[in-house]
Design a protein around this nucleic acid. Structure first.
Lengths: 165, 165
DNA sequence: TTGACGCCCATGATTTCCCATGCGATACCA
DNA sequence: TGGTATCGCATGGGAAATCATGGGCGTCAA
C-alpha cells in the first residue's frame, strides 16, 4: 500500500467537489473501491481519510478477536457510523459531505495532509496553525519515534511518474 | 462483502415504510435474498440489522466452536428467534414491524447507523445521545495498545500493525 | 368492513455523469 | 537552445440518472 505524503491544497467548488491530489489517488490505485473513506476526527477540527482496505482490515481484525476491548469496539462503532465511502468522479474528485465540511470549517479550500497510511483534510488556515503548534512543541521536546521495522522493504513511497505499466 | 458505513436518517411514512439507504443496499446487492434481516437489540433501544449472509456465517461459526459456550448459544437463540427477513419493495423500502419500532421508540424517522458488517436502526434523537456518549468516552480514554497507532496530533488513527497482505 | 400488506406509479430533489477549459510541466523538435 | 507540442491534473458547469418520498388501488384475512 502506498503512503500519503506531503500537503496539497485544492479548491472546493460550489457543489462541494474537490480533487483528491493525484499522488493520493496513486497511493490508492490498487484498491478495489476507487475512492476514499472519510470520517470526522474526534480530536481535531479536520476530516480523517484513508482507503477502504483500512476499514476492511479493521473490521476483519475485530471479528477475529474473541476478546475485544470494549473501548476499541466502541471506537470502531463510531468510526463506521461516521465514515463515508466517497467514490471519485471521472476526474478524480469527491464530493465532501456537508457535515464534514462544517466539522472542519472548510468552505472553498481544502488542504490534504499526508500522514503515512492515512491522511487528513483541513481548512488551510487551521492546518497552518496546527502545524505551527506541532513545530513549537517539537522544538521544545523533540518526539521520539519507534524503532524502525526491519525489512519493511525498499519501501515504495509514492512519487510522481512511477508508472510500471 | 460490503461494509455498512455512515449514518443516514430517513423518513418513516404512515405505513411504516422506510427507504433503506442506497449505500446499504449496495453493500447487500450480492446477496441472494434482496432485503435485510432485522432483530431487536438486547442491549440498546434500537434495531439490529444485517444481511442474510451474516446470519449464515454466524450460524456456521457457532457450529465450529469446539467448546460450546452457553452465552453464545443464548445469543444465537435470541437473534435467530426474533429476527425477521424484510424484503425491499421496488424502490428499496422495507416495512418496519410495529414491535421493532416500539422497541426502538421510532415514530416518523429512522437513523440507519453503519457498524461495519452490520448496522443499527435508531430513533434519531436517541442515536445522537448514544453517539455523544461514545464520543466523550473516546476523547477521555483513547484506546491504547498495539492495535492502535496514535497519531502525532493526539490522533486516534486506528490501525493494526498487521502485514499488508 | 377494516386493516394489513403487496404492488404500482408519480414527483421533486439530489447526486452522478459527461464534456469543456485552463494551467503547468515535461517531452519533443528544429 | 529556444520554441512548441503534448500530457496530466485541477476546475467549471449543464444534463441525465438515481434516490427518497408520497399516495392510490387491489387482495387477502380476520
Amino acid at each position: 500500500m502506498g503512503l500519503f505524503l506531503s500537503t496539497v491544497t485544492n479548491k472546493v467548488d460550489s457543489k462541494g467537489r474537490v480533487s483528491v491530489p493525484a499522488a493520493f489517488r496513486t497511493a490508492l490505485k490498487d484498491q478495489e473501491f476507487q475512492g476514499v473513506v472519510l470520517y470526522p476526527s474526534f480530536t481535531d477540527p479536520c476530516i480523517e481519510g484513508c482507503g477502504m482496505d483500512f476499514l476492511d482490515r479493521l473490521s476483519a481484525s475485530l471479528q477475529q478477536q474473541p476478546t475485544f476491548s470494549p473501548d476499541l469496539d466502541e471506537i470502531t462503532e463510531l468510526v463506521f457510523g461516521s465514515s463515508q465511502q466517497l467514490p471519485y468522479d471521472q476526474t478524480g474528485r469527491i464530493v465532501l459531505p456537508r457535515e464534514f465540511m462544517e466539522h472542519a470549517g472548510i468552505t472553498d479550500q481544502a488542504a490534504f495532509v499526508g500522514k503515512g497510511p492515512t491522511f487528513q483534510i483541513w481548512e488551510p488556515a487551521a492546518q497552518m496553525r496546527k502545524k505551527q503548534q506541532l513545530l513549537e512543541r517539537a522544538r521544545k521536546a523533540p518526539p521520539r519515534g519507534p524503532a524502525l521495522a526491519p525489512g519493511a522493504g525498499g519501501g515504495h513511497t509514492i512519487g510522481r511518474g512511477e508508472a510500471p505499466a
